[in-house]
Each structure stands twice: as C-alpha cells, then as structure tokens.
Design a protein around this nucleic acid. Structure first.
Lengths: 194, 194
DNA sequence: ATTTTTATTGATTGACCAGTCAATAAACAT
DNA sequence: ATGTTTATTGACTGGTCAATCAATAAAAAT
C-alpha cells in the first residue's frame, strides 16, 4: 500500500492530532498510541517519523507558533502607522485560531515543559522576543524611551488574559481580552502609566 | 517507634516535599515515592495519609493559597485608604514567598491540572474570585463603575507577569513586576484606560 | 528481474509506578 | 495483661507506556 511522499502528510496529521488530543485531555500526559490512533496510523509510525514523544509535541508547538506568526504578519501588512500596527499585533494574539480551547491547552502545557526542556525553553524565548520587539518597534516612535517598559506590560497583559480566558468555563468571545489590552495600550500612549 | 500525633507533621512534610519536588523537576510528573523519600518516609505512608497523588498535590496548592491569602491580609491590615490597599494587594502577589521558583512551578502545573480536574478548577476559581473582589472593593470608591473592567486588567497583568517571571532564566527580583502593575494601576486611576 | 528505498504495523521488551496489604511495633486504654 | 488505636514499611500486583524490531509490501531504481 505504500504511497510515496507520505512523510509530510503523516507529520501534519500527527501535529493536528497532538493538539486535538491535548485539547481533549488538558494534559500533556497523553500517549503516543492515542495520538497515532487519532491521526489514523500505528504508534510505531509516529515514532518512525518523529523519533519520540517530546519531538512530536515540539513540532506541534512550532506549528502553532508558525500560525501565530503568520497572523501577526497578515495584520501588520494591512496596518498603517505605528498605532494601527500595535493594534494589529494585539488583535493577532486573540484571533479565533489562537484562542481555541485546544490551542490554549497546548500553550499551558508548553509553559510547563519550558521549565525543564531546553528546546521548549528556546522556542518559548523566540515567541517572547518576537512579541517584545514587535511592540517596541511601534511603541518607540510614539513614546520614545518608555517603549521598553510599556512593551513588557502589554506583553504580560496579553499572556495573562490569554491564560485566564483559557481557564474560564464560559467561552467568552476573545473580544473582551482584546479590548482590555487596547485599553491599556491607550493609557500607555497617553503617558499615564508610571 | 510510633510517636503519636504524627499526622499533621507528616502531612506538612509531604506538602513541603511536593512543592520542592515540583520545583526540582518542573513537572507534575513526579512519583509519590520521590515525594515520600524527600519527606523522609515510605510511599505507603504518603498514601495512608493522603489517599492518592492528586490529593497530595491539591493539599500543596491549598497550602500555597493559604500562605498567599495570609500575606494579602497582612498587607491590607497595614494599609490606609483604598489606594494604599490596592498597592498592598498587588505587592502581596509578588512577595518572596509566592515568587519562588518552586512555587511558580507549582502554579503552572496547577493551571494545567485545573483544565481537567474539577477540584483544582474549584480551588483556582476561589483564588481568582478573591483577587477580583479584593480589587473591585477598593477600586470602586476611586473610579466607580469602571472598577470591574479595571480589576480584570490588573488581575490579568498580575497573572501574566507572574507567569513570565517564572519562565525567565534570570531571577529578576520581583520588583520589576510589582512596579509594572503599580504603573498600570496609576493609569487606571487617572481614568485613561479605555 | 532484482535490489533498494519508502511505508507500515503487530508484537515485544523493559521500565516505571500508583495503590494495596499484610505484618510489625509502639503507645494508650481497660 | 489484654485489646485497641496509631504509625510504619517492605513487598507485591496490575497496569501502562515509550521505544524497538523484525516482517510485509508497494514503488522506484538498476
């Protein structure tokens, strides 16, 4: 039965199945067999393509980060001027593709893993640095030297609201979180945060 | 050898050992045997007093929450007026006893667990509601109807900065986080966040 | 035609671990 | 003295799971 060129198809299926499985259980305590079954293959094949459980999960997070990065860039492309660009960055963090229950569950487990796994820590740092430098880039022309601290506050607020929303029982539309961050952005631009 | 009245001693030792062990590994993926060894007893005894692994961890989080609550109350007792009280609440979240690596690791794992464990979810809700109502109580006299949304932003910022600090490699003194939250508080009080 | 590469899985191994239980013994109660 | 409660553990059980491997087979290359 072997059709050639299956590798990318299988990898993609495993990545999606991993996020689905994490979303279904909430935990990273899932078995390779379950992921493989969800992706329609044997666990041996999953090992064959990824090598091990950690690498499957890291691939899933790399994918999540790629999707997020794409959304940020898409938003920035349409934005005109620093303020519009800042709003685009903030909105991108709460788009429906990043704000789904399963994706949030993956993020939470990713945070936990980042404490003990250097590759996960590295991946997380990439996300954090990118967000920070994106924010600073567009805050600087508006508030100069205060851009750095302001960016830290906004980034912290994004992560915190993301976390809180992920744990809320009611699936509040991401609107609330977005508006909250925009409100703080406004305050930062008015220079009243000190 | 049995000395009587060991139960509270053993329980306390297990709670402390649990947080230490989580801090050492970063994961909740720890064995009862490891915890028990760290606490100087057999795993059977740990099971005897707590019943199961989940219950040991929940007890550890209940303890953490108790310590945190005590610190909030201690801060509030010394504060005079709404603004000083708000500052006390914020400072309490970042005291050295809550801001230790192992405690933060426990929190992260607690967030993950809260997605799938109703008792953990309940415990987390208690923390969140308490923080929110504490903030609203002292924001209301200062900014009236805007207290609710402002409290959500401040609570989100606290959680987000806590999370970010927990994942940073350099153990930045909690000062930075505290100052950031106080800065946003100032902005909220000036009424410029919308 | 046959060798090599790619795809695929069932079965197995080796390790780990949560939870149980029977057994031991000190303290206390009667 | 005898019985009961509390403390304690070594040993065991049942189950789970990551990772490996040998075996099967289709496609591609020679």
């Amino acid at each position: 039965m072997p059709k050639l060129g299956m590798e990318p198809v299988r990898r993609a299926a495993l990545v999606r199945a991993t996020i689905d499985e994490i979303g279904a259980t909430g935990t990273l305590d899932i078995t390779v067999s379950k992921i493989a079954k969800r992706a329609g293959m044997s666990s041996a094949l999953a090992h064959h393509y990824f090598g091990g459980k950690d690498q499957i999960f890291l691939a899933a997070m790399r994918h999540t980060l790629t999707v997020y990065g794409r959304e940020v860039r898409a938003g920035l492309a349409k934005a005109d001027g620093p303020k519009a660009r800042l709003e685009a960055i903030i909105r991108a963090s709460f788009t429906s593709s990043n704000f789904r229950r399963d994706v949030i569950a993956a993020w939470l487990n990713f945070y936990v893993l980042a404490q003990s796994s250097p590759p996960a820590q590295r991946l997380l740092s990439i996300y954090q640095r990118r967000l920070h430098s994106n924010l600073v880039h567009d805050l600087r022309p508006l508030i100069g030297a205060r851009a750095g601290p302001a960016a830290q506050r906004i980034a912290g607020l994004i992560d915190g609201l993301y976390l809180r929303q992920g744990l809320a029982r009611d699936p509040d539309p991401s609107d609330g979180a977005t508006r909250h961050v925009l409100a703080v952005l406004t305050a930062e631009l008015k220079g009243n945060a000190q």
